[in-house]
């Protein structure tokens, strides 16, 4: 059970909400006035997305241990399947389903 009182719990949750909203709203608050968005920020707006999607892929794999257990083989194999199917058919849902089924099969039955 939580060692906190109810007001303390509410405050803890509220702080999480405030911090989250700060990170989501800040760019819009800073750069959405009448002034033009600085060149550097416009450049980052274009350069960031592909870098961010790459970051998110690595983020999803953060708990994969490459040195022990299954050495990340199921993850890498399932990603390879996802990429190949997507190159072949280029249908998002199909590629995602194929990769996920492949991963579930690998960890439930093989590893």
């Amino acid at each position: 059970m939580s060692p906190m009182t109810l007001p303390q719990q509410i405050m803890t949750i509220a702080l999480c909400v405030i911090a989250t909203m700060l990170t989501r709203f800040l760019p819009f608050l800073v750069f959405s006035g009448k002034k033009e968005t600085p060149q550097t920020v416009q450049y980052l707006g274009k350069a960031l997305p592909l870098a961010v999607f790459g970051m998110l892929v690595v983020y999803c794999l953060k708990n994969v241990s490459f040195l022990s257990g299954s050495h990340g083989i199921p993850e890498l194999a399932a990603i390879a399947v996802t990429i190949l199917i997507h190159k072949w058919k280029r249908q998002m849902l199909l590629s995602i389903a194929a990769g996920t089924v492949c991963y579930m099969f690998l960890i439930q039955i093989i590893f």
Partner: peptide
Amino acid sequence: TAMFVVIFMEQWMKQKKHHTGLIGI
């Protein structure tokens, strides 16, 4: 994970140069 891989690929194919993706990874 599979969804972010696919979204990464879609964005990758849309752009002529891919250095920013490699920088991110």
